[in-house]
Design a protein around this nucleic acid. Sequence first.
DNA 1: GCGGGTCGAGAAAACGCTTTCTCACGAACT
DNA 2: AGTTCGTGAGAAAGCGTTTTCTCGACCCGC
Lengths: 344, 344
Amino acid sequence: MVRKSATGRIGIADVAVKAGVSHATVSRVMNGNFTVDPDIAARVRAAAAELKYQPNPVGRSLALGKTDTIGIVVPDLANPTFQAILRGLSRAAAQDGYRILIADTFEVSSEEAILAGEARRRCDGLVLCAPRMSDAELEEIAPSLHPLVLINRTTATAGVPSLVVDYGQGVQDLAEHLVGLGHTRLAFLAGPARSASNGLRLQGLAAFKAAHPQVEVRMLEGGSDFDTGHRAVDAVLDSGATGILAFNDLVAMGLLSGLHERGVKVPEDISVTGFDDIPFARYTTPTLTTAAVPITELGQQAWHQMRALIRKESSDVPGSRYQPRLEVRGSTGPARAARSAVHG
Amino acid sequence: MVRKSATGRIGIADVAVKAGVSHATVSRVMNGNFTVDPDIAARVRAAAAELKYQPNPVGRSLALGKTDTIGIVVPDLANPTFQAILRGLSRAAAQDGYRILIADTFEVSSEEAILAGEARRRCDGLVLCAPRMSDAELEEIAPSLHPLVLINRTTATAGVPSLVVDYGQGVQDLAEHLVGLGHTRLAFLAGPARSASNGLRLQGLAAFKAAHPQVEVRMLEGGSDFDTGHRAVDAVLDSGATGILAFNDLVAMGLLSGLHERGVKVPEDISVTGFDDIPFARYTTPTLTTAAVPITELGQQAWHQMRALIRKESSDVPGSRYQPRLEVRGSTGPARAARSAVHG
DNA sequence: GCGGGTCGAGAAAACGCTTTCTCACGAACT
DNA sequence: AGTTCGTGAGAAAGCGTTTTCTCGACCCGC
C-alpha cells in the first residue's frame, strides 16, 4: 500500500509518514541540509529509497522559482547549423544539470515572438536563433525575454549577449581564395533574402568588390537548402562564372550534385565553395572547400553566456564574434586560362 | 507601478487587483470559462492586456498536473536519424500545443535510465530511443515511465507502443538487389555491436544467407559514423567483396569517400549501399543506393501514439512496423564478370 | 409575498515542494 | 539552580495557478 493523493504518484508526504517525520524534514534531507540528526536523516533516506521517492520537479520549480531548463528557438530543425547549435548547447548545459526545451518555429517567423515568449516562461532563460525576425520586433521583445542569448543577431537591449559569426569576413576569405587561384568571374549563390546572415555575406562581398574592382561578382538568387543549389545549375552555367560562392554547404552540395549530372567537372571546369563546414563537407566528391565555423562550440558558448546571466555574473558579458577559418579542400582549383560557357 | 511579489513578474493577483475582482475570476476568464459576466470578463481582459499578463506555466502545471511537454531521450544528437525523429516529433507535437524536452544521453548508456526518469518527471510522457540499453533494464524502468513510446525497441510491459523499423527486411532487400546485379561476394559493414538495430540487420542477413547459400557474406566490424566507413576501406578491399552493405548512410558515405581516395570506382569496381536514406544520400557522388525509412514520419507517429496514450485512448495502441523501401541510385551496379583484389 | 432554484463571484483548498518561523529541549554558563 | 543560548524538528506560509465550495443575490412560479 503505497499510493496516495489524486495523482497516484508518491510524494514527499508519503515519505514523511513512513519515516515518522514532517514534510519539512524530508525536504531538508533530500536537499542535503545538514541540520538534520544523522539518525533521522538515515531513516528518511531509507524510507525514500524504499518508496522509490523522486521529488516532483514541478512543485520544486514553483517553490524555487527556477526550472533548470533553458529554451532554444530555432527556425528550422532540419538545418544542420541549428542542429549543431542545439547539440553544443544541450551538451554544455547538461554538464551543469540543465535541460533544453526546443521551439522549432518552422520558418513561420510571424509566430516567432509568441513562441519565444511561451518558451521563455517555461524556462530559466532563452537562446534565440531568429534570422528572419525584424529588428524592430526583436528590440520589442528582447527585454521580456531576459536572460536571453542571441545567435547571429545583435540588439541594443542591455545585458543581452550576442554570439555572431563573421560571415562577411568568411565570404571575403573564400572570394580571396578563388581570386588567388586565378578566378576573375565569380558568382554568389545567395541565401534567403531577408536572412540576417545573408546580409552579412553581402556586406562582405561589397567590401571584397571594393578591394578587387577588376573581379566580376554576379549575384544569383537562392535559398538555404540542397534544392536551391541543384536548381541553380543553369543560372550558374549561364553566368559564365568559374568560381561559385554558395550560401552554405547544403547549397554547395546541391550544386555539386547538379554539376556532376551535367558532366561539368569540379574543380577543373568550375570551383565551388560552401560555408559552415558541416560534417558532410568532408565527404562530398570532391571534398568541399568551405569556411569552417565552430558551430557546436558556438552552442556551447551560448550556454556559458547563459550560465553567467543566470548566475548574475552578467555585468560584463560582451558576447563574442567567431571568425570562420578557410578550409581548402578539393572543390576549388586553378582557373582555366580561358573558358567560355561549357553550357549548351 | 506594476511590479509585485518577490519574482518581479506580474501574476494573476495583479490582474485581479487592477480589475477589482478575485484571483478565481481572473483564472476563469483566462481559461474561457463562460460563467463570468461579460462586462467583468471584458474588464479582466483589459486589465490583463494592459499589464501584459501571461500566466505562469509552472503554477499552471502544478495545478493541472500536466506540463504540455513531452520528453525525448536520444543517444546522440549528432546522428541524422535521431535528428529526424526529433524533428518529426517536435513538429507533430507542436500542432497540438505540446513542446519537447530533450535528453541527449551522449552515448553514455549507463546513465540512460536515470536521465529518462528525470526527463519523464518533468513531462507528460516520454519517447525513448535507447538502442544500447539492455532488455532487462528496459523492462525494469518501462512501467515507471508510462506514458511511454519506444523507438526501435519492444517491451513486454503493457500499454507501451513501439515504433520499429524492419531493418532485417531492409538489409535483405538490399542484399537481394546486389545479388540481382550479379554480386556473389558481399560484405556487411556492421554497426555498434550491442545496438538493437544492428541485431535486426544481422537477423535479416542470416535469413538472406539461408535463402542464398551460394552467396558469400563477410562480416566486418564497424560503427555508425563517417569515420567507421572511412577507416574500413582496407578491410573492405581485403575482403574481396564486390557488394558492400554499410550499416547506415553515414558509414556508406565514409566508405565512398575512402574508396574514391584510393581510386576505386563505385559502382564499377565495388557497389555500396547505405541505410536510412538521409537527405544527404541523394547528394553523394555517386548517389547512394539505400533503404529509405520514413524517419521523420516515424517521429510524427511517435507523437500520435503518445497523444493517444495521454488522452487514454490507449486501449488499442499496437505500435507499428515500418518497411524500408529500396531506393536504387548510383552507388550500385552490375558485378564485373570476374574481379580479384584491386588492392595492393 | 415568499420559498426554491439558478447564476455568478469570492473564499479557500489543492497541487508538491522549499523555507521561514516558532518552539521545545538540552547544554552551558553564572 | 536559574537563565541563556544553540540546536533541531514541526507548523505554517509561501510559490502561482485551478477548482471546489460556499454564499449572496436575483428570478421565477405558486
